[in-house]
Write a protein that binds this DNA or RNA. Sequence first.
DNA 1: ATGAAAGCGCTAACAT
DNA 2: ATGTTAGCGCTTTCAT
Lengths: 341, 341
Amino acid sequence: MATIQDVAKAAGVSAMTVSNVLNDRPHVRPATREKVLAAIAHLDYRVNVAARTLRTGRTGTIGLAVPEVNRPYYGRLAAAVVAAAGRHGLRVSIEQTDARRENELATLAPSRARVHDGVILAAAGLTTSEAQRLKADLPVVVLGERIFGGPVDHVAMPNVEASRAATGHLVARGCRRIAFLCGAISETPGDVDVSSLRRTGYRQALADAGLPGDHQLEYELAEFTMAAGAQWARTTAPARPDLDGVFCVTDTVAMGVLRGLADVGIRVPHAVKVIGFDNVDESAYLVPSLSTVAPDHDAMAQRAVDLLVRRIKGPESDDREPEGFVAPYEVVVRESTASAG
Amino acid sequence: MATIQDVAKAAGVSAMTVSNVLNDRPHVRPATREKVLAAIAHLDYRVNVAARTLRTGRTGTIGLAVPEVNRPYYGRLAAAVVAAAGRHGLRVSIEQTDARRENELATLAPSRARVHDGVILAAAGLTTSEAQRLKADLPVVVLGERIFGGPVDHVAMPNVEASRAATGHLVARGCRRIAFLCGAISETPGDVDVSSLRRTGYRQALADAGLPGDHQLEYELAEFTMAAGAQWARTTAPARPDLDGVFCVTDTVAMGVLRGLADVGIRVPHAVKVIGFDNVDESAYLVPSLSTVAPDHDAMAQRAVDLLVRRIKGPESDDREPEGFVAPYEVVVRESTASAG
DNA sequence: ATGAAAGCGCTAACAT
DNA sequence: ATGTTAGCGCTTTCAT
């Protein structure tokens, strides 16, 4: 395997000149550049990434830490991040955190700085206060909740607003007894997990409509899974005949709910209307198709990568105030909330 | 950030001894080892992966090249590979090939040998003859079709047998006019893509049952997508009122088909029974739930990683004959092929 | 059982 | 515009 020295020799220049060509640095005469490129092609030379990393401290790879690869939402996100990173010439290495805080924190440990130039952390296990005190040893962008006053750049879902819109849509379709299904809500006061943010939006929408809030209608599931959603629909929903709408914290949960309601003969959207959150690809193909909130995944991924690259590139930029970006969204209306029977 | 020299100094030994401790090499006195470990802990020392890689040529990372991260099947697979690799202390870097042969071949190029110790290639764009002549510059395990006489280890789906079983199940449930939906089938004679293998199983099952094969019932879709499946169900299925069963090349396609059939009022399983392939998580929660072939994803991932690790570890093992592993499978019967109306 | 020396391939800094 | 020098942090080889 050819080295930069071999190329230099073949081109009749110094290794440094080859390096300059490789890295698109100025001050290389076109003629010289040609010679070097020819030698590179001839020898089929490839840079040794390890050597470059050892020298520069840059690895050319960013980490993407997600709770679980095998979930449509994160699959969608990962695809978008891989694409966006590629545009910056960066590789993406995906890690699973299983939504456990120690794993999430571990991705920011110094040891990772040796492997990744930066990390995009799709946080699900951290508390807000933890996120606000994140002391990362490498550039980080947190993807998930909006972290006010946190120390790192973050890209967030418009959780509250979008949930309010989703619930508002149910209200507009005539629902009056709307359940909210979410995951475990943190006990820590001031902590903002997805569930509590979306619950806030849900409550606001009820208030907007002058509907009484009923905490009996707020259900905390053990997990964000289809199984949990289905289980709820089979056991709890039938016991609440007054129910006419369900807002699910994610499409995955909603998929389970649709299945469970079908099992117990509760018709959607006739008896109960259902709306989810995420606009996962599958949602459009369910029977009935699932109404949902569609955040702009590509914009989130693109922005996350851009923010990260800026921190990676500019050491001076460490001083820059942490930035936040809230993705645009829209409510996608499908059969599960259709108005006519 | 502490280096191995710092640790050596702190422990009062040479760098070499520290290295020996780090790499669990013999001939280190327990007392010495203790001293070193203490120094490591005290300084919070971490090996510099780049330096080690430069020296040894090993990166500690394997590549996983999949057509698309954002597809349930590959998400499921990726999760399993990440888990299996972790057990060997290896990181996984995921790449997308978009099922294009040049991208798939690129993952095996020498330049990647600098970044990955080996690659698991979920091939979808290569022809058999290409796969059989794969000249990889680093250890590779191909995950996908069974490559007879190929030069690399491979882990395969039991495509033919499982498809035969799936189709046989439809026959057993009384279907007589069974359609087969697949992706584009390669023109190259002798080429075995997923579609043609599964078609072979389908045809065998029909022959087993003494049913006439009717090539009019074999449909090649442009893509393995829900959209393509739905499109087919909406346009083609209604034109074939004799149809009573559909075997889809993947669950994703089947999801689209279920949706499309619902659109045109063809009832499943009453009028038409549908079976898929993959047993994606979602399949159990569709309405109707989808019967399918369930290959053992975890076994496939585990085996792929094991095979790869063997090639990486043992240079002498290059001589070993390429191994093939065919995953076990079972037919999972759900509502979409239920017998009673 | 431990250590000294050398070098993996690259690039930052400083010549020229 | 190009070249020289030095060294990133580790491990292989050969001593001791």
